[in-house]
Amino acid sequence: LQHMERYFGTTQVKFAQLTSINVNKWVATLSGTARAKEMYPICIRQIFRAAIDELNDYDNGIIRVKTNPWGKVKIPAADRPDKKAITAEACRAFFATPLPETRMVDPLPELGRDVAMMVLCLAGMNTVDIFNLRKQDYHGGIIHYKRAKTTKLRTDDAYIEMRVPEVIKPLFEKYRAGDHTDRLFRFCDRFSTSDSFGSNVNTGIKQICKSMGMPKERWYCVYTFRHTWATTAQNDCAATIAEVGFAMNHSHRQSVTRGYVIPDFTPAWELNEKVIDFIFFSDATSRRMEREKPEEEGLFRISPKMLIRAAAFFQGRCLANFEDIGYSNIEEVTKALVNQFPADIPDRSMVQFKIVNLDNGKVHVYEHQKGKGF
């Protein structure tokens, strides 16, 4: 009962209420959420087990809690979270959008935009870690911190160092806390907890999305910019999944080794700068946007001024290839390749041809049968 009072704040909660019917009812109530439907029942089960450990004395045969309904309860698994990443183009549009007009001195949209910028430019740093930063954690232009989410689960304490890029140093000055606290940022003056801070940041981000005319189901949140950093790093900056994970301070397979190796975080800083340059200091098209473009209708066309790379293959073996200009159509390319073929290609055999227009990147693949196509 003391455990229940400690967690629920009331002495009216009785162990008799923890029947399988009520537990299943709680699980069903949470079934519409992603993580809560798994985590809340698990936490309640742990409370129940802690109460049993404290109240039951099996060595002396004192059993105060005689039933355990959790054996019959099947806790649902958490839903796999949606991929929230947006394109670099959408990211540029978000940060370039004028803030909604307000009479507030410290409006939430401004807070949401600024913190989203911090998250994006610090390799997807979580808001709880931004909120908890101390003055002693930031020196030499580098922040030193342990990721709150996994620090107790990893042998390296989830420690990471991230160099602060120039683009957000003005924000560090804007939100720098006064001498009355050891916190790095003055967010603690306005919000009592990191949860409250994160919730208000998300509200500010959503208000900007609303002002942009976006449908509600597409509104962004803090995790949008964390996911966007990871996606941009991998898709547009040629980073490997391992490099992305290292920069974002994710757990590593070699967790024991990482626990006693002093890592060099320079590669993470360099990758972070590449992501920032791609998003904010270029108008390059993200690869996701290129893939989403509809294919142009019409035939594959070439002209004598275009540089062509062509090759022909039989059973995977390259029979002929060249890279040149001066071809007006596919038939001329085919003829030039066939002239290089060896004489031992069997009749009625299929040969595959591949032409790449090096000027526009278009590719055309086709095949011909010996005796008919050539």
Rank of each mutant, 00 (worst) to 15 (best):
D156P: 12
I75G: 02
K149I: 09
V73R: 02
L153E: 13
K149F: 09
L99I: 11
K72A: 11
Y145F: 10
R163W: 06
T151L: 13
K146R: 14
P100C: 08
M125E: 00
T127E: 04
L133E: 00
K146N: 13
L99R: 05
D157S: 15
V115K: 09
Y159M: 13
L120S: 05
R134D: 00
K83W: 01
K135T: 02
A123T: 04
G141D: 03
D156K: 15
T151Q: 15
P98A: 09
V115Q: 09
I75P: 02
R134I: 00
F131D: 02
Y159D: 14
T151R: 15
G112L: 08
Q136A: 05
T97V: 09
F95W: 05
R103K: 13
T87I: 03
D157A: 15
V115H: 05
I142Q: 08
C121W: 01
R154K: 14
K83N: 09
L99P: 05
Y159R: 15
R163S: 15
F131M: 03
E161I: 07
D129M: 04
E89M: 06
V164K: 14
T97I: 07
H144S: 12
K83T: 07
A123I: 03
I86Q: 10
P107G: 06
V119S: 11
I86M: 10
V105M: 07
L122Q: 11
A116R: 07
F95L: 05
D114E: 01
V105Q: 10
H139N: 11
A88V: 02
R134Y: 01
T102G: 09
R134T: 03
K84R: 15
T150C: 14
E110H: 07
P107S: 10
C91D: 01
K74F: 00
V105N: 09
H139T: 04
D79G: 10
A96S: 12
R154I: 06
L108M: 11
G112M: 11
F95Y: 10
F131E: 03
A96K: 14
D137N: 10
A116H: 07
F95Q: 08
T102A: 11
L133T: 00
M118S: 11
K152D: 14
P100Y: 06
H139F: 08
L153V: 13
V73F: 01
P100Q: 05
V164C: 15
R80F: 01
K152Y: 12
A78V: 01
C91L: 11
D114V: 04
D82A: 10
P98H: 09
T127C: 12
I75M: 01
A148E: 14
T127K: 03
A148Y: 04
